[in-house]
Amino acid sequence: MSITDIATGPSAVDRFFQQLGAAPVILAVALIIYPLIVPGFFTFQIGGQILILGMIGLSLMVLAGYGGMVSLAQLTVAGIAGYGLAIFGINSVGIMGFGWPWWIAAPMAIALAATAAALIGLISVRTSGIYTIMITLAIATAFYYFVNQNYTLFNGFSGYRGIQPPTLFGLYWRDPLPFYYLCLASAALAYGLVLYGARSSFGLALQATRDNPRRMRAIGYNVTAIKVFAYFLAGLIAGTAGVLYVWFNGRISPGTISVAESIGILVIAVIGGLRHPIGPFLGAAVYVLMKTFAIDLIGAERFNTLIGLVFLAIVFISPDGILGLWQRLKPHLAPTSLRPHHEGRD
């Protein structure tokens, strides 16, 4: 920034940072230096997992928050990308495994997942509201049973092992540091795209469809196409996360996409808050930290009871998740008139 800039008013970059405020910048810096100050376990096992699950939660948030469609099949979409990667690329099981290089296999897997997501959307937009949950849950459950039974395509119960991320630029991308930054970059990209997309004309049309589909139809929008396209976009995010998740685990099996795990994604998104894209990442942080450290508190076996109770508490106390709690603690951040759900619900 040179001094002459001040005379001509703030530049575009300046205005951007002014609008942004300090908090996101601090957060971004913290996330970037985070792996440099914590041990590798926190970088890979916790940091990576939070970002991946946060991305899958983000794909649910896009559908639920902007589209009003609570889909329980987002982990299924991620799982389709994971299975796609195992089938297109290299695995150590000896079933399928076309052996395509990663730069073909990974994009193909993501494209496959997004296509599957659009198909799921096409099925579930036939109905609306609470039915979406039921239909997507049925799809997720059916897919889980299917991969569990089917050995020719999905290798049944044991699934695929030995799926490796590439070694590129002299880095093995499953090492904690590169993998963390890979996840961070993907998550930041997805987050930025969602923020941008929400204010694009498509994002506005999607939100308008959520609020009043009949009116949107009346003024000439193709409501079905808007919703299905939203599923497709969310599928791109979930698919990307699915590829990362397989690299993270090194394997994929029906257990990864079981019904409990699918519901876990909903838990993550709801705990964090469905109103803003940052919510799912917050929720994922709570979820992963609790999953990792609840062992010390209550024993590993009862994690589900704990997370279930936290989830119930959030649903009862603060329907907008942690974000909602935060906004209630900081009343000046959100005027009461914008929060219609809070009267007399405690």
Partner: peptide, 9 residues
């Protein structure tokens, strides 16, 4: 959903 998670566990 929350109840079913807790109940199953």
């Amino acid at each position: 959903i929350g109840i079913s998670i807790v109940a199953a566990d």
